[in-house]
Write a protein that binds this DNA or RNA. Structure first.
Length: 558
RNA sequence: UGGGGUGUAGCCAAGUGGCCUAAGGCACCGGCUUUUGAUGCCGGCAUUCGGAGGUUCGAAUCCUCCCACCCCAGCCA
């Protein structure tokens, strides 16, 4: 999969954000657009972030602008270097490049501080001594307006003095804040004198102990946008009512540029959760093996699971961007993964639940090498040699002693094709004491080498197989939805919706020899089964996704 | 009468007064092809756009009222 960067969807997406950008460009409001992806380094990136990354970098790419990667690192209490590193790796893996435009909100701390003093001098910000509890009380409620803090009328000089002493470390955490002086009666709670700075004696991953006061999101984000020259600051819907504050700060500060904020609906998907808080709980609670557990909707989890970056990009393009709260079915993502892998993944044979087969009329000894096509959808993928011999393994599910009418695989007396090999007929069924089928005795027709009968004889099924003597052993991990419920947590605790069968570990699986040298991280198709990815853990394969299986569906319907 | 949003098929989503008796994708249902019961191909799938009124020759698109759902009361982002 070297050409992971080629997207399946070629048409340029159209949505309200792109309409706005196009309009701004056409009207000459901007000659170049600049966007940004602004993660807080307090966790790993997930599918929801992927949607945002594709939007922001996509916009820059489509309209000839650029997209910055900016860490919104204004809360040292929960940010870590580990997350910064992981985030950069994930964005790059997704296929995007921020070039030299890597920024940190913390790089702006000095400028932000100066702007805070500017607001104080203009009488538009004040130092408040209210405790968090009192401030909540003064803020009012959704239905009632708030009241002015008793400290709201301090003079600019007094505020300046206090604010400088806050920076100097004279006060303890939580004892004072810097607040914008806007309107305690506003219907928009974000405008009821929002906190701009808080005291936090904490070690910051980048500035360490240089500061003990930190700007919060509202004071850092828009101003960082202005400093970087961001033209379109795209965020999610929950920030919609922060926009008046965003604009108020931009208007009241001598910023070098005027950015604008636009909001779109965040991604929701069935059978999973997309919130850093919950994903963190799954990791900390040991419900998964880590942020990169293949069942996680994190970018690292999906990567380990074998999902190609191009499929994720295609998914982002297909679902579009809107303002309506929507829940995407995972099936839509699955379709993107299958589309991509069907075209690109090389085919191999592997038997997950082996059933031994002995071809009684086949000569004993080394056997022979047979030619097998690597990808019927891509001639350039070529072919390979697969060893065939007297003793083989076939999939246990491909045999039934008493096959029902619609089952057309192997059964006593039946003839089927072994892919790229021969037609075989089952002549005898060997069982153990308990009556379990342990081995099949078959005969083959030497005339059918390669898989076709010269007499035109047809067969109803083609089975995958592996030569017993040449097979490599492997552990294969089968994954299912992490959550059994479509929307975890709609009723009760979301953890109670965890799917107890989300992981099935199969050992003693038999692989064709070429699979032994597959590179970790590469996804291939196991014929008739699905797509599988070699894990970094040698000898382990993760199932990316099964193939569509109309037989299984028909069977379950009865 | 707190503020801000959203409502188009099972799930997404185009559409911005007349080529809309409403794109496209996913899902689903048929048929054909097939050395993967995969893939591919063909066909089906909203006389209707949250509801009710109104404006207009003409409305999913404009107006009014109503209904439903989502977000906001962190010194988180």
């Amino acid at each position: 999969m070297a050409e992971n960067n080629i997207d399946a969807t070629s048409e340029a997406p159209s949505d309200f954000i792109r309409d706005i950008v196009r309009g701004d460009l056409d009207a000459g409001r901007h000659t170049d657009i600049v966007t940004r992806f602004p993660p807080e380094p307090n966790g790993y990136l997930h599918m929801g972030h992927a949607k945002s990354i594709c939007l922001n970098f996509g916009l820059a790419g489509e309209f000839g602008g650029r997209c910055h990667l900016r860490f919104d690192d204004t809360n040292p209490a929960r940010e870590e270097q580990e997350y910064i590193d992981a985030i950069m790796e994930d964005v790059r893996w997704l296929g995007f490049d921020w070039g030299t435009h890597l920024y940190y909100a913390s790089d702006n701390f000095e400028q932000l501080y100066a702007w805070a003093e500017h607001l104080i001098e203009a009488g538009k910000a004040y130092v408040d001594d209210l405790s968090a509890e009192d401030m909540r009380e003064y803020r009012g409620t959704l239905l009632t307006s708030g009241r002015d803090s008793p400290y709201r009328t301090r003079t600019a000089d007094e505020n300046l003095d206090l604010f400088r002493r806050m920076r100097a470390g004279e006060f303890g955490d939580g004892t004072r804040t810097l607040r914008a002086k806007i309107d305690m009666a506003s219907g928009n709670i974000n405008l009821r004198d929002p906190v701009l700075y808080r005291i936090l004696h904490a070690d910051h991953p980048r500035t360490h102990d240089a500061w003990c006061i930190y700007p919060n999101y509202d004071f850092a984000h828009g101003q960082s946008d202005a400093i970087e020259g961001i033209t379109h600051s795209v965020c999610t819907l929950e920030f919609e009512d922060h926009r008046p504050l965003y604009d108020w700060l931009i208007e009241n500060l001598p910023v070098p540029a005027i950015p604008h904020q636009y909001e779109f609906a965040r991604l929701n998907m069935t059978h999973t959760v997309l919130s850093k808080r919950r994903l963190m709980e799954l990791v900390d609670g040991g419900h998964v093996t880590g942020w990169d557990d293949p069942r996680m909707p994190t970018i690292s989890g999906m990567r380990r699971r074998g999902i190609p970056a191009a499929a994720i990009r295609d998914f982002a393009a297909r679902i579009g961007v809107s303002k309506s709260n929507a829940v995407q079915e995972v099936a839509a993502l699955d379709a993107c993964v299958r589309d991509y892998l069907n075209q690109r993944a090389v085919r191999r044979m592997a038997v997950l639940k082996p059933l031994k087969v002995v071809i009684e009329n086949y000569p004993e000894g080394d056997g022979e090498m047979l030619d097998a096509i690597n990808n019927p959808n891509d001639e350039s993928a070529g072919s390979r040699q697969v060893p065939f011999a007297r003793e083989l393994y076939i999939e246990a599910d491909d045999f039934m002693e008493e096959p029902p009418k619609k089952f057309f695989r192997l059964g006593p007396g039946r003839e089927v094709r072994l892919r790229y090999a021969y037609f075989i007929t089952c002549t005898d069924v060997i069982k153990d004491q308990a009556g379990n089928v342990t081995e099949l005795r078959c005969t083959y027709d030497p005339e059918t080498k390669g898989g076709n009968a010269p007499d035109g004889r047809k067969v109803k099924a083609t089975l995958h197989w592996v030569s017993a003597a040449h097979a490599a052993d492997a552990e294969v991990r089968l994954y299912d939805h992490l959550f059994a419920a479509e929307e975890p947590g709609v009723e009760g605790d979301y953890l109670s919706d965890l799917n107890p069968d989300s992981l099935e570990v199969l050992t003693g699986c038999k692989l064709e020899p070429s699979l032994a040298d597959l590179a970790p991280g590469e996804t291939v198709q196991f014929e008739r089964l699905g797509y599988f990815c070699r894990d970094a853990d040698a000898g382990v394969f993760n199932r990316t996704l099964s193939l569509r299986d109309t037989w299984a569906k028909a069977k379950s319907k009865g």
